[in-house]
Amino acid sequence: MGLLIVGHRGAMAHLPENSLASYALAEEIGVDEIELDVRLSKDEQLFLLHDATLDRTAADDSARNLGPVAELTLAQLQAAMLDSGRGVVTLAEMYDATHSFIQLEIKDPAVVPYLARFFAERPEDAARTVLTGFDADAVRHAAEEMPHIGRQVIVTEIAKAEEYEGGLWALLDHAKVTRFASGFGGLTPELVEQLHARDVEVHVWPLRTLEQTREALHLGVDGATSDDPAQAIAWRDQILAENGVVARS
């Protein structure tokens, strides 16, 4: 009985998402993994951002109404002031500043060949990474380019996976996954057991309540992603204690 806690974009309930400070707080809290988002600039540099524009995370007009980030150079992205008090974080900066296992979500399929080059030069970082995404084709491309790095496909609920031609199992086979992440909808202990029988790890998201934490433990999933990982860890440890299990230190 256990549950890995994954910090969503660091510890975004407390500090700006996808910032070095947010990643550092997540590690201080004691997360098992950090989930974050990778994109590609106009000049083919890898950086971390969830959205396709800077608008939502902008601190001032220097970062607003600049258009798609894929059409901006890294220098432009770094000059824009975000809510973190600086511009975007590069992928290399993040790896240099962290030691945790990383769930690296592919937000733009164009990043895949650039990630392959990046990890070829940084095998120690490849070893603490799983590549994730909602785009099954991008995840499959990642599997072909980087077969030594784990892959995870994400869905909002099991029903969405069943919409794929051939259903859930065809989706997982197509994406060549080692992990599967889903919202709680449609997940059952029996399905989790079937996934485990295929050597596929199972994660749930988002984890926002004590009851969802109980459900995650009941389902037998391997991990859960939370905006507030400190609270998620406290909930997990409370439930484990109720069942006479001492949490990992």
Rank of each mutant, 00 (worst) to 15 (best):
residue 4 L to Q: 13
residue 6 V to P: 01
residue 9 R to M: 15
residue 18 N to Y: 15
residue 22 S to W: 12
residue 22 S to H: 09
residue 31 V to Q: 08
residue 33 E to C: 10
residue 34 I to A: 04
residue 43 D to P: 08
residue 44 E to F: 12
residue 45 Q to I: 14
residue 47 F to T: 15
residue 53 T to H: 10
residue 54 L to G: 14
residue 54 L to K: 13
residue 55 D to N: 15
residue 57 T to H: 03
residue 57 T to N: 10
residue 60 D to H: 02
residue 62 S to W: 00
residue 67 G to T: 04
residue 70 A to G: 11
residue 77 L to Q: 03
residue 80 A to E: 05
residue 80 A to L: 02
residue 82 L to V: 03
residue 85 G to P: 12
residue 85 G to V: 15
residue 85 G to A: 13
residue 89 V to I: 15
residue 91 L to F: 06
residue 92 A to L: 14
residue 93 E to M: 07
residue 94 M to A: 15
residue 94 M to Y: 11
residue 97 A to I: 04
residue 103 Q to K: 11
residue 105 E to T: 05
residue 108 D to S: 08
residue 123 P to A: 08
residue 124 E to Y: 11
residue 125 D to R: 07
residue 126 A to F: 07
residue 127 A to R: 12
residue 132 T to E: 14
residue 133 G to I: 00
residue 136 A to C: 00
residue 145 E to Q: 08
residue 145 E to S: 02
residue 145 E to T: 01
residue 148 H to E: 07
residue 151 R to V: 01
residue 157 E to T: 03
residue 158 I to C: 01
residue 158 I to S: 02
residue 159 A to M: 05
residue 161 A to N: 03
residue 169 W to F: 04
residue 170 A to Y: 07
residue 173 D to V: 02
residue 176 K to C: 05
residue 177 V to Y: 09
residue 178 T to A: 11
residue 178 T to S: 14
residue 178 T to Q: 10
residue 180 F to M: 08
residue 191 L to F: 08
residue 195 L to N: 07
residue 200 V to I: 15
residue 207 L to C: 00
residue 208 R to H: 08
residue 211 E to V: 12
residue 215 E to S: 13
residue 216 A to N: 13
residue 225 T to F: 01
residue 227 D to G: 04
residue 229 P to I: 05
residue 230 A to D: 15
residue 233 I to W: 13
residue 235 W to N: 06
residue 235 W to Q: 02
residue 239 I to P: 05
residue 239 I to Q: 08
residue 242 E to M: 09
residue 245 V to M: 11
residue 248 R to L: 09
